[in-house]
Amino acid sequence: MEARHYAWMTLCAALVLTGCEDEQATTPDDETALQDAVAYVGRWAAEPAWCAQGGEERAITLSPSRFEGYENTCKMEASQESEDTWTAQLECSGEGMESSERIRMRLEDHEAMTLTWLDRDDAEVALMRCPLSE
């Protein structure tokens, strides 16, 4: 069985267990387990140099429930469409403004992703996973 199948089994088990506990009982270890289980979690950039930079040309950070980009942070509710594709609703705030939009994340392998902005005429961005050491 592939490693990502084990990761999904871990995610499912974590979600079942989380539903049985009080919402306030979630620990940082629970969030870490979810991050390890969701394939799109990590830092992603359109250019390799962006992985090490700050400012406007920098990597975005994805967690199971957050999308963090340049000068904005979004709450994210993602649902899986297929083995390698997720759609997500983003509720964002940044620079004193709030917005809501939808994205699709399609992993081409564990190191490449196509991010589609569904409410921006399906504009696509090719992203690469940033190394963990940066």
Rank of each mutant, 00 (worst) to 15 (best):
S100T: 11
H5W: 08
E57R: 10
L11P: 01
M9I: 13
W44F: 05
M113W: 04
S100E: 09
L17S: 07
Y40S: 08
R43P: 06
Y40M: 08
H110T: 03
L15M: 15
R4G: 07
S63W: 00
E57A: 03
G94H: 10
E68S: 11
G96A: 06
L132A: 09
S79T: 10
W117L: 10
T18L: 12
E31W: 14
Q89Y: 03
A39T: 03
A49T: 04
Y40L: 06
W50K: 08
W8P: 00
A46T: 14
S63M: 03
A112V: 04
C92D: 10
T116Y: 05
D109N: 14
A25N: 02
L11S: 06
L115G: 14
C92R: 11
K75M: 01
A7P: 01
P131F: 04
L107N: 14
Q24L: 08
M76S: 12
R106K: 12
R129D: 01
G69D: 02
R102Q: 13
W86R: 00
S79I: 07
W117N: 03
F67W: 15
Y70F: 13
Y70A: 14
A59W: 14
D119W: 00
D109P: 06
S100P: 01
A3N: 06
A3D: 04
G19Q: 07
M105Q: 04
M113R: 05
H110R: 03
E47V: 11
C92V: 09
Q35F: 02
Q35R: 02
S63V: 00
E81Q: 08
R129F: 02
S99Y: 05
A45C: 04
E2D: 15
S79C: 04
A78C: 07
L90F: 07
E108Q: 15
M105F: 08
